[in-house]
């Protein structure tokens, strides 16, 4: 059974250690036919750190995010995750099924368009990661409701997504990303479809629920104002890291 698969790797360290990066990518390459999306990217992401990834369209930002998150497998290189609860492992060496299991227990996602399911209510969207991990529905719903209240969504649990504003929808997405207490949260243009005031609120919610709790946040963005709120800004161009500063 996939969820209980023991993931072994030479990088493995004892569970409970924190003096290492939450995520560490080494010499990642990824090509799509003749297009080189990543040409050897190395990056370390530390616990309690918010990192903005910037770059022009086609610079490889989203591909890097997808490789770090185990959505895509890189052509070469390593992506080592250190989850204090589960030890360390190299995502690049895992098959699709194992990467899915890692995404479920260690990562959270907030994308521009939320990846929320319009058929479900707000709270049902939030409970999904818990129920996928085998948590009983009532317990999952109670936990989801607490996260929603934390993010200012109390009373909106039973609303369908169409009945929520853009900012509220993104906060539902943040609640869903946080509900399983992931080590790293990945956000791809999380404020791309929002006005500047709502954008500020969403980033504030995202940062307080991740960095301020000692988790790692990776944000792919075009918006310098969003990047400013992060601790580090990594610039990509032509599939390579061209700048990495605080």
């Amino acid at each position: 059974m996939i969820e209980r698969t023991e993931l072994k790797h030479p990088f493995s360290g004892p569970p409970g250690t924190t003096e290492r990066p939450a995520l560490c990518a080494r010499a990642l390459t990824k090509t799509y036919g003749p297009t080189v999306a990543l040409a050897g990217v190395s990056i370390e992401l530390w616990p309690g750190e918010a990192v903005a990834v910037m770059g022009a369209s086609g610079s490889g930002k989203s591909t890097l995010l997808h490789c770090l998150a185990g959505v895509l497998a890189p052509d070469s290189g390593a992506v080592v995750l250190h989850d204090p609860r589960h030890g360390s492992l190299d995502l690049a060496g895992l098959d699709a099924e194992e990467r899915a299991a890692v995404r479920l227990r260690s990562f959270g996602f907030v994308f521009q368009q939320g990846l929320l399911l319009p058929e479900l209510t707000a709270v049902e969207n939030v409970v999904l990661p818990l129920m996928l991990g085998g948590v009983e529905r009532r317990a999952a719903q109670a936990r989801a409701a607490r996260w929603m209240a934390t993010l200012g969504l109390a009373g909106l649990e039973e609303r369908r997504l169409g009945q929520l504003s853009g900012g509220q929808q993104q906060r539902v997405a943040i609640a869903r990303a946080q509900v399983a207490d992931p080590v790293v949260v990945f956000a791809d243009e999380p404020t791309g479809a929002l006005d500047s005031s709502t954008s500020g609120e969403v980033m504030s919610a995202l940062l307080s629920s991740t960095r301020d709790r000692g988790r790692t946040l990776v944000v792919v963005t075009h918006d310098p104002l969003v990047a400013e709120t992060c601790d580090r800004v990594v610039h990509l161009a032509d599939g390579l890291v061209r700048g990495d500063g605080r």
Partner: peptide, 27 residues
């Protein structure tokens, strides 16, 4: 930020997803 949620223990996600719970929701 409200501390209530942040103090929740980490859920155990090593169980098997229950089809009987998820099916009514997703279908």
């Amino acid at each position: 930020m409200n501390a209530a949620a942040t103090q929740l223990h980490t859920p155990d996600l090593t169980g098997r997803a229950r089809l009987r719970d998820l099916a009514p929701l997703l279908l």
